[in-house]
Nucleic acid binder design. Structure first.
Lengths: 159, 159
DNA sequence: TATTGTTATACTCTATAACTATA
DNA sequence: TATAGTTATAGAGTATAACAATA
């Protein structure tokens, strides 16, 4: 069996209502997951947000900055600095959309694609570490339910 | 059936690997959930973090600030300012632990308990809104899996 | 010596408004 | 008139170190 890893202070409070609150559980899971993932991605000079943008840039779908912002739920102005960093590192390039010269399409370079392949393995290891304690089936169920929650929640189109 | 609420830009990118990444899905779900929950809690002058502290203070378990920090995965110094705010609003009080005078136990006042009852209903409505699209059974499953992920992930006891 | 709460500080993340160039 | 990207700025959240009181 797995050993106890948190102090008694923590499981003493697990009897509270808050410990059954999805918003709280989501927040706590995310803090833990982000710390672990940033640590793994840090070996490749990336963090969660920059990895996400690089991943979409290397998907072949040629997203615009506006699409990145909506998908990642970040403000368009935040995308600017993330793309600036990735571009100055030679991982992605901005291409002006030929059909709408206002839009800029973000595409990964060959260097970016190579780094993304390495980083995605690091991200997978981070996920594996963060979800230790869940079986493979349970991880798939969690993924499916989070996917629905992340994309099906109506009405909250923006801030 | 529910109508489409996100633009085509978003579901165009749902075919990417990132859309199956638990860390990303968790982040997106949390952003949506936090926005919704903060909006509901704002009617009572609370936000997610202050509501969490108030909730534990009103649990009857008399948590110390250190316990709050570990359970909520916040730095002890962050607890200070949250408790300062709640205390200056008359919602909680600091009581010096009689068995260890270094520790301060945070307990809700009667005013705090009353506000917490109202706020917990607001939080429940927020959860209901954030998880629209999931059935009751699915919400319970999500709650259970997040609970395991939030508390079972070993090794990441602190920074 | 070690721990609890506290203060101070810096850094990251998030939110808002205004500007430019294109449509 | 509206939209994509950009800049600037402020606020919220997070991380780190040092200190006083107590153990």
């Amino acid at each position: 069996m797995s050993e106890r890893v948190w102090s008694s202070s923590v499981d003493r409070l697990m009897a509270t209502d808050l410990a059954r609150d999805v918003e709280f559980l989501n927040a706590r899971t995310r803090v833990i997951g982000t710390v672990i993932t940033n640590r793994h991605l840090g070996d490749h000079g990336l963090r969660v947000r920059s990895y996400s943008v690089l991943s979409l840039a290397c998907s072949g779908l040629r997203p615009t900055q506006r699409e990145l912002a909506e998908f990642l739920r970040l403000d368009p102005s935040q995308i600017v600095s993330i793309v600036d960093d990735l571009e100055s590192s030679g991982l992605v390039v901005r291409e002006t959309d030929s059909t709408d010269r206002r839009s800029k399409v973000i595409v990964g370079t060959s260097h970016g694609a190579r780094l993304h392949r390495e980083a995605s393995r690091a991200a997978a290891r981070a996920e594996d570490e963060a979800l230790a304690g869940l079986t493979t089936d349970e991880r798939d169920t969690l993924r499916e339910l989070l996917h629905r929650a992340a994309f099906a929640s109506a009405g909250e189109s923006a801030r």
